[in-house]
Design a protein around this nucleic acid. Structure first.
Length: 591
RNA sequence: UGCCUCAUGGUGUAAUGGUAGCACAGCAGAUUCUGGAUCUGCUUGUCUAGGUUCGAGUCCUAGUGAGGCAGCCA
């Protein structure tokens, strides 16, 4: 039983949820429908995780649905490669949380034409969870409908074909000057738009523009472009189209077609909101309109978040891939061993606002430790071994000691760990010349072996170079739990493994990717890469770790949390360090 | 430059005109067969100046600072 899984998820509160709650109260919509609309041009990162938790969280809290939608309106930037990873990341993150609220549609299904209040209307909704043969929504599935909406806008005299070059367009918009093509007749616009679609014109020669105003203070209202020519194959629609709708035109219509009620995006779209509303209102649509709300994207210290920069780290080989455990991608974080629950808790803890701040990674670290502390099975493993020989034990002394699997979870039970004459302990746990307040092993000193006995260091054996070769100690066999002197106190307890039984495992010690809190604040962010962000060592592990599974989380006691890497194989264990334990001693030692 | 948005301890957030609270971080202590976890306590805050009000973090005005937008990207 996983105790943290039983705890009810707290219900967050923020300005967006306040709006949703008010809309529910006022019965403005039959059902709350949100959406998570990534562009399939890269891997999802922890910033997207914030958005996923928000959108799916709202669906969950208000008994609604959150559509997963590929926002693929630009054929030159997107790729199917990313569609799979996006689905996998979303599924992983919402599993056991909001997977009952994931909105998908039947494979290959396009919007249906219906009549609402005497008007032609397009609609495509989600099917119930559990329906077979489903897939995410694709913006590109609506190209036919969006095209028809564009035609409708032309017929209403609210859009026109413009023949200016990109440079001219920019200049006119900057200056607030009207395009010379602004007052073409509806017939001419219809004809030209049809010919744009038919492929008669080259890229960049014509655009369709909404006829709003030429000099509004908000530049996005200065006759914005809504369709451009792109003679390019689209990963989802193939060669069918050579004109593609722009984000501003497409997105609000995608939302409308799917019956989205609350369209939540990040702050940079704030200035686009009037356009979002204008288009939907201009089209005189028969169903309730969706509304856009903006919140601050996540910035995290000691990492970078832009897709461009993450792509650069991958392409230039600074990391092993998009799912390198040092990456802030969802797949990287998952591979590092972070449970989805920890990520969700993190998202809950940071909240949702319009303030553009920098969140300390410490908040993430805390959420990870907090979750792992409850679920991880404790194991004994020695990262940097020194040998200990218990001189008062028989050559073939052997015993099995009882070890608690998880002190935070009584149901996790116990296991046996072998104890023999020769052991490994952590080299950090012995000091020939101990610093102040050091209460681990020292010459002539005593320490407790976790789950075992108190030992005393009698002699330090060194090799020819003066390095410590082994520690010769004596053991007090009366001090085990249940033994006559179990209550005897010593200051330190250390972890250990039986030398004879220890199994080797590759252990990848990950650290933060960058050495400064804001790597992209100025200059080249790569100059701040942490040269020690990965160290690979071979550790000595207790034998039960041979049965480690990828699902299970482990705490190597007194060290850190670990998870099996995907490259691990039977007989060739590979562990990733998810996160270290808090280390108060390290802080103390610095003083 | 124009337009938009934001401003509460070191950081992230709450307080919806009525006692400025929570989390992380930090510090101190208790406890501990993990220097983990747990528990207790502590330090630190409403950007500035005016105004409205019995009362302002909250409303108004001005200023300051920060961010966003000004792609035929999303």
């Amino acid at each position: 039983m996983n105790p943290s899984a039983e705890a009810p998820s707290p219900t967050p509160s923020d300005f967006i949820r306040d709006v949703v709650a008010a809309d529910v109260q006022a019965q403005r919509y039959p059902k709350i429908i949100t959406r998570f609309p990534p562009e399939p041009n890269g891997y999802l990162h922890i910033g997207h995780a914030k958005s996923i938790c928000l959108n799916f969280g709202i669906a969950r809290e208000f008994g609604g649905t959150c559509h997963l939608r590929m926002d693929d309106t630009n054929p030159t930037k997107e790729d199917v490669e990313y569609v799979d990873s996006i689905q996998a990341d979303v599924n992983w993150l919402i599993s056991g949380f909001a997977n009952d609220h994931l909105g998908l549609k039947p494979k290959g299904k396009k919007p249906e034409t219906q009549t609402v209040n005497g008007k032609t209307d397009f609609h495509l909704g989600a099917v119930p969870v559990g329906t077979p043969e489903v897939e995410p929504f694709y913006a590109s599935d609506y190209f036919d409908q969006i095209y028809q909406y564009a035609v409708a806008l032309i017929r209403l005299g609210k859009a026109y074909v413009c023949d200016m070059t990109p440079e001219q367009t920019d200049e006119y918009r900057r200056l607030g000057k009207a395009s010379p093509f602004r007052d073409r007749s509806i017939e001419e616009n219809l004809d030209l738009f049809e010919r744009m679609k038919a492929g008669e014109f080259a890229d960049g020669t014509h655009t369709l523009r909404a006829k709003i105003t030429v000099d509004a203070p908000n530049i996005w209202l200065r006759d914005p472009l809504i369709y451009r020519i792109r003679h390019a194959e689209h990963h989802h629609t193939g060669a069918k189209w050579c004109i593609y709708p722009m984000y501003d035109f497409a997105h609000c219509l995608e939302d409308y077609i799917e019956g989205i009620t609350h369209s939540i995006c990040t702050l940079e779209f704030e200035v686009h909101r009037p356009l979002y509303d204008w288009i939907l209102e201009a089209l005189e649509l028969p169903r309730p309109l969706p509304h856009q709300y903006e919140f601050a994207r996540l910035s995290l210290s000691y990492t970078v978040m832009s897709k461009r920069k993450l792509m650069q780290l991958v392409r230039e080989g600074y990391v092993s891939g998009w799912d390198d455990p040092r990456m802030p991608t969802i797949s990287g974080i998952r591979r590092r061993g972070v449970p989805a629950r920890a990520l969700r808790d993190f998202a809950y803890n940071i909240g949702i606002t319009k303030y553009d701040g920098l969140t300390e990674v410490g908040v993430l670290d805390h959420a990870i430790r907090d979750d792992l502390n409850h679920v991880a099975h404790r194991k004994l493993a020695v990262l940097r071994p020194i040998k200990v020989v218990l001189t008062n034990l028989d050559e073939n002394y052997a015993e099995e000691l009882d070890a608690v699997n998880n002190p935070e979870d009584p149901n996790a039970g116990t296991r046996k760990v072998p104890f023999t004459r020769e052991l490994y302990i952590e080299s950090e746990d012995f000091r020939e010349v101990p610093p102040p307040k050091y209460f681990r092993l020292r010459p002539g000193g005593e320490v407790r072996l976790k789950y075992g006995y108190i030992i005393k260091c009698e002699e330090v054996v060194k090799d020819a170079e003066g390095n410590i070769a082994e520690l010769r100690c004596t053991v007090d066999l009366t001090t085990k739990r249940g033994g006559p002197n179990e209550g005897r106190k010593v200051k330190g307890t250390i972890h250990w493994v039986s030398a004879k039984h220890a199994i080797d495992a590759e252990v990848r010690l990950y650290d933060r990717l960058f050495t400064v809190p804001e790597p992209d604040a100025e200059g080249d962010f790569k100059a701040h890469l942490n040269p020690n962000s990965l160290e690979v060592i071979t550790a000595k592990c207790e034998p039960s770790l041979a049965q480690a599974t990828p699902e299970e989380r482990y705490q190597f006691e007194r060290l850190a949390y670990f998870a099996l890497d995907k490259e691990s194989a039977p007989g060739k264990l590979v562990f990733n360090r998810t996160i270290t334990l808090k280390d108060t001693w390290a802080k103390e030692a610095k003083k």
